[in-house]
Design a protein around this nucleic acid. Structure first.
Length: 783
DNA sequence: AATTTGTGTATTTTT
DNA sequence: TACACAAATT
């Protein structure tokens, strides 16, 4: 191994403060880095890896586990800039992707082939549903989500289905929840996944544990291979993940974990904050380094965040401080409704861009739930501000994408039951539920796989369904042959898209949706092309692509086009590790943030508080905390109370609601109730303020500062593109001719009132009858 | 078997 | 509201 010269190492080490330096150059043995928000954690991790390589460690012997693939990729690039192309040999990625890779090599020890499928949450849920149905259980009692959660928790604690069924504790719990059959469902679920040569997300970790437990030769190999194990975002690892790293580090004892207990926000999926707290017990020799200087944010922001987080009981002692400018106070923004909140913030962004010369990419809007993005999308669109939404239903969850991927999956792995169910009658080939059920029965009777039946269908049944199935089998077989012949992922996918008829069907569909779907497929094919064209990818086969694709994290989403200058919108969970000049934390209302479901016990509430802490500490210069007084919740207008978290931040850091700028009240706002509602509000607040602490002056001021909205002139006037404007219900009635930007010309046949929002039924010349919600639809009245 | 209509129900965060 | 799923049509 090359031992690099230290000219550069001296350079990069010089940039570090003493604790950072200590962390980077820690020679060997267990190391825990407690890294406060914005303390240069990524830099330390990067430099440490570079430093290790400088010390003569082969990149091939270093394992670095990150929270997202993107983080891994970025880190790899940064290391490459320091040490050169050797960085490519690092083992770096998420737990799931790294161990999926190892399981691909070693899985046969457990009875899986290297082509195993990875079931995503939808697949898992679908299988659970199927099983519940097969057991003739009531899926209103056995809620698939609950059952899946239960199984997931079991696996993450390394409880096998056998152990689950033997343990009376679980049985009692399930009986108490009136779901005594969960153990049986778990068993069947596990067996069915195995039979399908498929692993769900939890299996990737669970099976790795089993692999290392039962196959010491394999464990040994990787223990010796990984001379250094580094774990980022350690506070968000679960027991299953922790045990894997502990086993891997058992020989060399070179384990370095980086984390911040104050930023642990994934307990809901099994992350265990105790991992951090117990780490010392597992490694008595442990050296702990604390990084406490925040380089990211203003003093005001750091101090405000500190004043919040100190309300939590469970935390390590730590003193995060900033030596940056004191900075501006945190602005608290009050709006009368969720839509108003959207407009106010869009306007602030618009003005600030002009005033301070900021770019779209300097702004982020962070919310608790994905559903909250709507109002902001609308408002930003109206001001022509470009944005990107991270998360939500991702590209890969769209129906047409999942369909094509299911074909690819089935081509690679014919055991894949979920993929089979998706594609057997797609496009329509006249194979209905009856036929599929018959096949499943036959497979069970003859104790063979579904594919065995399908590929020899004529031996089992005849009739027209049999012909259709034979054709299907032949199609798949032709794909298998091409795969065997060594075609790469892109060639395969293009060929399959063309020859299944999926593409043809979508092409024929000239509706807007059909067009969009067609484009989505094209986009998927493009991204596969990128995959096979990428020189850093060694394995360009279809199985390799599928593996990568199923383990993409939401943060991994690429910008659709090269345009990076966009306002970012995402959940706070998604914002981890990121930073922005100006951050808006929105929807700060009781029962929304903190979420209603997290109010049951202290631990949950503290996790919500940490979540808020994460949100605040994303901001570099400007922070705006926003809440609305009313909000539509599942179609119902509800009155909201400011979040308790707002009141927990020390008042000296806040600027309470300024007479918040009146924002244009445009005519599409009928679902905003803006006029005063007198006594109603007061009583609502009183009746809902069960959990709120006694009102401090801050709260008083927040609540009293009521202001009328919608009279003064808006800030920047802006024309929506084209002639289309959101329609004004008062000028519409049955019989009027209108034009819609997507659907073209049509005639209104009916006007309705749904709640407080207007609906118009329009018969379009080319698209037939549509019912449009006027608060969203843009219609132009044709003279 | 495919399409349309109606009913009910869930509303957190993600690998 | 809005989506998923079941029942009722064609």
């Amino acid at each position: 191994m090359v031992c690099r010269k230290s000219a550069e190492s001296v350079n990069y080490l010089k940039e570090l403060n003493p604790p950072q330096h200590q962390a980077v150059t820690h020679p060997k043995g267990p190391l825990m880095i407690i890294a406060g928000a914005g303390s240069g954690k990524t830099r330390v991790l990067t430099y440490r890896i570079a430093w290790l390589i400088d010390q003569g460690i082969d990149p091939f012997n270093i394992l670095a586990l990150t929270f997202t693939n993107k983080a891994a990729q970025e880190m790899r690039e940064r290391i490459e800039r320091i040490i050169g192309p050797d960085a490519r040999n690092l083992w770096m990625g998420t737990f799931h992707s790294v161990f999926a890779k190892i399981l691909r090599y070693e899985g046969k020890a457990l009875g899986y082939t290297s082509n195993f499928s990875i079931y995503d949450t939808d697949d898992s849920k679908s299988l659970i549903k199927t099983i519940i149905k097969e057991f003739s259980l009531d899926d209103k009692v056995y809620k698939p989500n609950y059952v899946l959660n239960r199984i997931s928790n079991a696996k993450n604690s390394l409880v096998s289905w056998e152990m689950y069924n033997e343990n009376p504790l679980f049985r009692e719990e399930d009986a108490g929840a009136r779901m005594p059959e969960i153990g049986r469902i778990y068993k069947t679920y596990a067996q069915r996944c195995f039979a399908a040569n498929a692993m769900d997300f939890d299996d990737l970790l669970y099976n790795t544990n089993i692999l290392f437990r039962d196959h010491l030769d394999v464990l040994n190999k990787y223990q010796h291979k990984f001379k250094h194990v580094l774990v980022d975002e350690f506070q968000d690892t679960n027991v299953s993940q922790y045990l894997i790293t502990r086993k891997l580090a058992a020989v060399h004892q070179n384990i370095c974990v980086v984390g911040d207990d104050a930023q642990s926000i994934y307990a809901f999926r099994g992350a265990n904050i105790q991992n951090i707290l117990n780490f010392k017990k597992d490694y008595p020799e442990l050296i702990t380094v604390k990084l406490e200087q925040n380089y990211r944010s203003t003093q005001n922001i750091v101090n405000a965040a500190n004043s919040l987080i100190k309300k939590n009981k469970d935390q390590l002692e730590k003193n995060v401080f900033s030596e940056n400018d004191e900075g501006k106070k945190i602005e608290v923004l009050k709006s009368s409704s969720d839509n108003e909140e959207g407009r106010a913030i869009a306007n602030m962004i618009f003005e600030e861009k002009v005033r301070d010369g900021l770019h779209n990419s300097d702004f982020a809007i962070l919310y608790r739930t994905n559903a909250q993005s709507r109002a902001f999308e609308e408002a930003l669109r109206k001001l022509n501000i470009k944005y990107r939404i991270i998360g939500g239903l991702s590209f890969y969850q769209r129906k047409e994408i999942k369909d094509l991927l299911a074909y690819l999956r089935f081509t690679v792995n014919q055991q894949d039951e979920e993929a089979f169910k998706r594609i057997i009658n797609l496009p329509k080939r006249g194979i209905g539920a009856q036929t599929v059920a018959k096949i499943v029965v036959l497979a069970n009777e003859h104790r063979v796989s579904i594919w065995e039946i399908v590929s020899h269908i004529k031996q089992y049944i005849d009739g027209r369904a049999a012909n259709a199935i034979a054709a299907f089998a032949e199609l798949i077989q032709s794909y298998m042959i091409e795969l065997e012949a060594g075609k790469d992922a892109h060639e395969m996918a293009t060929h399959i898209a063309k020859t299944t008829g999926i593409l043809r069907e979508l092409y024929a569909d000239k509706t807007v949706e059909g067009l969009a779907r067609y484009e989505n497929i094209q986009e998927l094919l493009n991204s596969i092309k990128q995959f096979t064209d990428n020189e850093e990818v060694e394995d360009k086969t279809l199985p390799a692509f599928l593996q990568t694709v199923s383990l993409l994290t939401t943060a991994d989403q690429e910008d659709e086009d090269g345009d990076h200058d966009r306002v970012t919108m995402m959940t706070i969970h998604g914002s981890k590790g990121l930073e922005f000049n100006h951050v808006f934390v929105v929807g700060l209302e009781e029962n929304l943030f903190p979420s209603q479901m997290m109010l049951n016990n202290r631990a949950d509430l503290e996790e919500e508080r940490r979540l808020f802490y994460v949100a605040i500490t994303r901001a570099e210069q400007n922070l705006t905390l926003s809440y609305a007084e009313q909000r539509y919740n599942w179609g119902r207008l509800t009155f909201c109370e400011p979040s308790r978290f707002l009141l927990e931040i020390d008042e000296q850091f806040l600027k309470l609601p300024k007479a918040n700028k009146p924002v244009r009240k445009s005519f599409d706002d009928d679902n905003d109730v803006i006029s005063s509602f007198g006594g109603a509000r007061k009583s609502t607040f009183q009746s809902t303020s069960k959990a709120a602490p006694a009102p401090p002056s801050a709260k008083q001021r927040v609540l009293n500062n009521l202001k009328p909205v919608g009279t003064a002139k808006p800030a920047p006037e802006h024309k929506p593109s084209g002639n289309f404007v959101p329609s004004n219900p008062s000028e519409l009635k049955a019989g009027i001719l209108v034009e819609h930007p997507k659907f073209g010309f049509g005639k209104i046949t009916k006007m309705d009132l749904m709640g407080s929002s207007h609906k118009a039924t329009v018969v379009f010349d080319s698209h037939g009858e549509k019912t449009l919600l006027l608060s969203f639809a843009k219609l132009r009245v044709v003279e």
